[in-house]
Design a protein around this nucleic acid. Sequence first.
DNA 1: CATATAAAAGATAAAATAGTCTTAAAACCT
DNA 2: AGGTTTTAAGACTATTTTATCTTTTATATG
Lengths: 150, 150
Amino acid sequence: MLLSKSCVYGIRASLYLASRKEGEYNSIKAMSETLDISFHFLTKILQQLTARDLMESYKGPNGGIKLSQDGRKATLLDIVIAIDGSGMFTECALGLPGCGSNKPCPLHDSWATTRDHIKEMLDKTNIIEMSKAGKAGDLRLTDDLTFHWE
Amino acid sequence: MLLSKSCVYGIRASLYLASRKEGEYNSIKAMSETLDISFHFLTKILQQLTARDLMESYKGPNGGIKLSQDGRKATLLDIVIAIDGSGMFTECALGLPGCGSNKPCPLHDSWATTRDHIKEMLDKTNIIEMSKAGKAGDLRLTDDLTFHWE
DNA sequence: CATATAAAAGATAAAATAGTCTTAAAACCT
DNA sequence: AGGTTTTAAGACTATTTTATCTTTTATATG
């Protein structure tokens, strides 16, 4: 799999938040139910994004989580790196530590191209734009058809 | 990570075998030492490739493993699918089961393009050609610099 | 036939990832 | 101050992936 499950959850949550009113805190519980993601697990993932200043959280009644100003500018690439790390964009496709331009592995060059392609795809659109396109096209964000953008 | 460790081991083993004399059985033990992969683990991975008729094995003294005729025509894509399955080329990037052209997720189209790009990269060159290029260019197949093509 | 060699197969263990449950801390409200 | 809401943090469990160890099976050879 290209992205870990944690990463996918982080992306879905980000798109969800991106579609919500700017600046307002959103209940993680409600989001976990809407997106059908385990509440505690989602909380942990969001904590990682908060730690990287892509999100901001607030405790207590009417608390919740929202995209930070940085988060609103973020692309999927930022989310992926925040959760899965940058390994996939820096490491050799065969996981060979010494692999580099002076002693490359057989995949080195074609992987560099492919990796750039993946990176570009993830970095092309920011999550606010993606959520707008999601709303406009009534795109899927859950397994079933229960989800509706707002 | 794009490829599982098992898959990477399978690829490295395939390239190793592709560089060896056609038709001859190669000791898995020797290969595991040369490539610095756990012998028993490598054996299991090779069993998967043998089960898919990409390789043939032979027990007993002077036994070992070799690429089958099909295996000699195989590309990295064949190895990847044999070990990691075809999921990465069929499934939604967000893992949403219902995702498809009628109700796509926000990544559906760009992932389709990227996925095709990855697939093309893996399917471009067969492993015999790759091993020839590996030998010609003295390319890396191990962590350190101990490996030499033959 | 006995023994050695090498892969196959199975059992077990370790590590990473995914997921759950409980307690703590912060913020709010009366 | 006391109780409630909601995120944070920690402990614990489950699953998957990776790795190791042991036993079995097939083959060769003296």
